[in-house]
Amino acid sequence: MTNHDSNGGAAVKHRHRHEGPQKHVVAFIFSIALTLIAFAAVAAGGVNTAFTVLILLVMAVLQVLVQLGYWMHLKDKGHMIPIIFMAGGFFVAATAVVAALYWMWW
């Protein structure tokens, strides 16, 4: 039995591409690796403090991108509006932090 479209022709079935657990396992391992790198940077006592802070900031940004992309599914199609609103929120928060720092020091 075949499906027919309104023109009498055979309808093409479009299968929804199911994302298997492989990508989630890779994202989970990547998240764990980022966390371990951050812990190792702090645990290594002889490392320069500025370098440790830089490593922690880089690991935090990467961790946020992995979390938003894979666990919050923002990498999928149709999620542009939440991405735009989050970018706007980050912009407002960054502007508030810069304004507060400016206000305190000048």
Score class of each variant (00 low, 15 high):
H79M: 15
V47Q: 10
G78T: 08
F91G: 15
F30A: 09
V64K: 08
A10Q: 13
V64L: 11
A93K: 01
V98G: 03
S31K: 00
F91L: 15
L68R: 02
M72R: 11
V26P: 00
W71R: 01
T2G: 02
L57K: 06
G8V: 07
W106N: 12
R17S: 12
P21N: 11
A33H: 01
M72K: 09
V66I: 14
H18Q: 08
F85V: 13
W106P: 08
L65C: 11
T52H: 00
H4Y: 14
L57I: 09
A44Y: 15
V97P: 02
A94K: 04
D76M: 06
L101C: 05
S31Q: 06
H16N: 09
H79R: 15
L56I: 11
I55R: 00
M104H: 12
I29M: 13
D76K: 11
L56F: 07
Q67V: 14
Q22F: 10
Q63F: 15
F51I: 09
A96V: 14
N3G: 05
W103G: 06
V26W: 04
S6R: 00
K75L: 12
F90T: 11
V53K: 10
D5S: 00
W106K: 05
H24N: 13
H24G: 12
F51D: 04
G8T: 04
W105P: 00
H14W: 01
K13L: 07
N3Q: 07
V53A: 14
A87S: 08
L57G: 15
A11F: 01
G46M: 03
T49R: 03
W105H: 05
D5C: 03
D76R: 09
Y70C: 03
N7F: 08
I32W: 07
H14Y: 02
H24T: 07
N7I: 02
T49G: 02
R15L: 04
A96I: 14
A10S: 07
V61D: 13
P82M: 02
V58W: 06
A27F: 01
M80R: 10
A38R: 00
F90M: 09
A41S: 15
H18Y: 07
I84E: 14
A100C: 10
I81E: 11
V47D: 05
A96D: 08
F51Q: 04
D76L: 10
N3I: 06
L36E: 06
W71E: 11
A96W: 10
F90V: 10
I81C: 02
I32F: 12
V47Y: 09
H79T: 14
F39K: 04
A96N: 05
A43K: 01
S31G: 14
A99K: 01
M59E: 10
G20T: 07
V12W: 00
H73K: 14
H16C: 05
